[in-house]
């Protein structure tokens, strides 16, 4: 069964092109999208989340074309952590997470019901934020802030969670922490997770499925252990390296070219 399917997806924005991207994201798995900077990973995620309109091709979410979803309806199927950037308004962590319930309410109603409170509790619990719930979101550290934003997405109670570079600005301890929490969510609730990652080791260790994008086109896909090879590294990143696996972790050892 597929959670997300794209078919010949095209987009031209300035000099950037996405040319005929067709991918399938399996339900209940963690899928990593990797590729060099500017390859179109984030763009692909934004297209799937309906934040950008494609220039051609189609996207199907849980068996229904993306174009057939109303915004709020889509927000009950699919949530996303965008790349960090926006400054947060002056809110407590709990209030931020509570915004995740917006897709379940009309544009004007503001009362939260018992189901909402339960979802918010659960989301904060999962992200280990219960003891910080009354803190102002602006006072959080980078890692906590990221978790608070993910808690907001979790409170949406969707079947699919997209994350755009969730670990890029975190130190290794927080990175591993986050990856563990995410794989827990995937294991226990069957949450389908798609994330753009730069770290191939984490992609291999935590993700069951890997999609590599380069210059706006898919160049490799499959199980990370099978996909990450010297040939792959040459094709995607243009580096010469040896690859050895230590358990699930690939060791990538660059072959240094002599300086000319």
């Amino acid at each position: 069964m597929t959670a997300i399917e794209t078919n010949e997806l095209r987009l031209t924005a300035g000099v950037f092109r996405l040319s005929g991207v067709s991918i399938t994201v399996p339900v209940g798995q963690i899928t990593a999208i990797v590729g060099p900077n500017g390859s179109g990973k984030s763009t692909l995620l934004k297209l799937i989340a309906g934040l950008l309109a494609p220039g051609g091709g189609s996207i199907v979410i849980h068996g229904k074309p993306l174009a057939g979803y109303k915004r709020a309806e889509l927000a009950r199927e699919l949530s996303m952590l965008p790349q960090s950037g926006e400054t947060l308004p002056e809110l407590t962590v709990r209030e931020l997470a509570a915004y995740g319930r917006s897709p379940y309410h009309g544009p004007f109603s503001r009362r939260l019901n018992a189901e909402d409170e339960q979802a918010i509790d659960w989301a904060l619990e999962r992200m280990n934020l219960r003891r910080h719930e009354d803190r102002m979101a602006r006072t959080l550290s980078g890692g906590e802030r990221q978790r608070a934003l993910i808690a907001m997405a979790l409170a949406q109670k969707t079947g699919i969670l997209l994350l755009d570079e969730p670990t890029t600005y975190l130190d290794i301890a927080h990175q591993l922490d986050l990856m563990r929490v995410l794989s827990g969510l995937n294991r226990e609730y069957g949450l389908t997770i798609v994330m753009v990652l730069h770290d191939l080791q984490q992609a291999a260790a935590f993700c069951g499925h890997l999609i590599a994008v380069k210059e706006g086109a898919v160049v490799a896909r499959g199980a990370p252990q099978a996909v990450i090879t010297p040939h792959f590294l040459k094709a995607v990143y243009d580096i010469d390296a040896k690859v050895r696996f230590d358990e699930a972790y690939p060791l990538i050892i660059p072959l240094l070219r002599p300086e000319l």
Binding site: L51, A72, L74, S79, P82, E86, Y99, S102, P103
Partner: peptide, 8 residues
């Protein structure tokens, strides 16, 4: 972006 993702 966030508002859209929240179904607005």
């Amino acid at each position: 972006q966030s508002a859209k993702l929240l179904g607005q």
